[in-house]
Amino acid sequence: MLSSIRTLWLTFLHLFHRSETVEYPEQMPYLAPRYRGRIVLSRDPDGAERCVSCYLCAVACPVSCISLQKTEDAGRWYPAYFRINFSRCIFCGFCEEACPTYAIQLTPDFEMSEYERHNLVYEKEDLLISGTGKYPEYSFYNVSGLAIPGKDKGEAEHERPPVDPRTLLP
C-alpha cells in the first residue's frame, strides 16, 4: 500500500520533469552511420553492380521480403531482378550481415512512407545507388576465383597464375 502511494507521488513529480520528446520533423534526430534504415544496393569501386545474386540475403530475411533471380553476363553474376517489399521489411539488417559482397547495405534513412502500399515495393533500379556505400575499397571479383572480363584466372588478389596440367615438373 505504502509503495503504491510512493509510486503515485513519484509519478506525480514527473509533471515537473523535462520532456524527452524530440520534436521531429522540426528537429531532426541524429542517425548513426550504421543506422538500419532504407536498404540500398551498392556498386564496385569501378561502378559495376556489387550484387552477385547469391540469394543469401533472401534466405536470411526473417520475413522473406527479398526476392531475386540470378542471371549471368560474361562470367559475372547479376540479379535479373531484385525486389524488396518494404511493406514487410523489419529493418533487422540480417540481409546486410549475410551479404558476402557488401552489396546490400542499410542506410540512415527511414522517411519512406507511402500512401499506396505497392509504392513500397522497390525494384533493382530503385535500390541501386551509384556509389560504394560504407565499403569504398571492396570488390568481390578481385578476391573471387571466377574469371570476368578484364580479370582472367589467376589475376585476382592472392592468386598464382593458372597451372599447366601438362607439366610434370615439380
Binding site: 522473406s64 525486389r83 515495393v121
Partner: peptide, 8 residues
C-alpha cells in the same frame, strides 16, 4: 525465401 516479395 522471398515469399512476401516474389509476387509483390
Amino acid at each position: 525465401s522471398g515469399r512476401t516479395a516474389v509476387d509483390a
